[in-house]
Amino acid sequence: MEETEDFASHAKRKHYDPQTYARLLADFTQLMEEVPKLRPNRDAWDIEGDWAATGTIFFVDAVHQPLFEPLRAFDCRTIKLVNLDRPAVRLTFYRKHRYWLLKDKDLPPAEKINQIQTYLNDLLVKCQVLAQKLAVLPAPKRAEASGKIGLYQQQIQQWEAILATPERYEMALSNYSRQHMYVTVNYKYRLDSGDFANEQEHLLNTQRDRLGNITQNRYNILFIDPVEIHREHPYQNREVEGYLANFSIQSEAGKHTLYARLRLEANSQPPLV
């Protein structure tokens, strides 16, 4: 698997019983609201970029870090301690495309078959649902539905052929084309040795519905070295699109895209009679 967003990320999260999670969240929220905040100063701070497209960011003086220590291990879904113990002396915000990519070598044969079969089942259901509605749809909608059924049937034929001889195809699985963009912060901090180091973290986005209405606020807490942040620090200075573009068969399968192409050795074989 490549890049940033883990295909099985939810499986790695900590699980809490509802009462425990609610108690920890209440403690975290109260502390977040009560701790004094710093107001970022673009003219005085060593800070670049725009963070308006992400969740709420609170800039907090590093002196208050010990208050958050009891909550360090809490895997909160809505509040993120971005850089506890690493107060920033320089901040750079930028938008980053986050995605996951499973290449052919990452997909066991059984998983390939499962992914194709799941996609085929989904297409068959869509065809059946539309076919049942055709008789009652007005003419324009009926033509549109018939066109969709035709496209679904083409996809079904294509992927059924791949399913019949999956060993002849190289496959990949990715949500790359869905363009999940996250605001990421690159921050510089001072090590105990006195040297500087850099880290980057993606920030929690505000959750919105399809109409753009906020459904859940999310918060990011950034700790700041209040002295060093006023000094200038040295500026820290893709093959994925090309890789995926080489797949001749690409199908949207829910939240990800299914890719396939004939293996080079398969291309050199004579056609089956």
Rank of each mutant, 00 (worst) to 15 (best):
S174Y: 02
E160S: 14
T92M: 07
N114I: 06
A52V: 13
L191Y: 11
E48T: 11
T56L: 13
S174H: 05
D192I: 12
Q207W: 12
V63F: 12
Q157A: 06
E170L: 01
R23V: 04
T165C: 13
L107Q: 00
V82Q: 01
T4N: 08
E167S: 01
A73V: 10
R13W: 01
Y187F: 15
G254L: 11
P87E: 06
S177Q: 12
D122C: 06
A245H: 13
Q200K: 14
E33M: 13
A245P: 09
Q154S: 11
A164L: 01
A266H: 05
T206S: 08
C76N: 07
D27P: 06
P226I: 04
Y176Q: 02
E48I: 06
D192C: 12
H230D: 09
L258E: 05
F58G: 01
A253Q: 03
K14S: 02
E3V: 04
A26S: 15
R168T: 06
L173F: 09
G242I: 11
E69V: 02
E199D: 15
Q117Y: 07
N217I: 03
A52D: 07
Y16F: 15
P36W: 10
T29P: 05
I214W: 03
N220G: 00
Q155S: 09
Q269D: 09
E232D: 13
K188P: 00
P226Y: 02
L163D: 00
A172Y: 05
S193Y: 10
Y187W: 14
A139P: 03
R72P: 04
V136A: 10
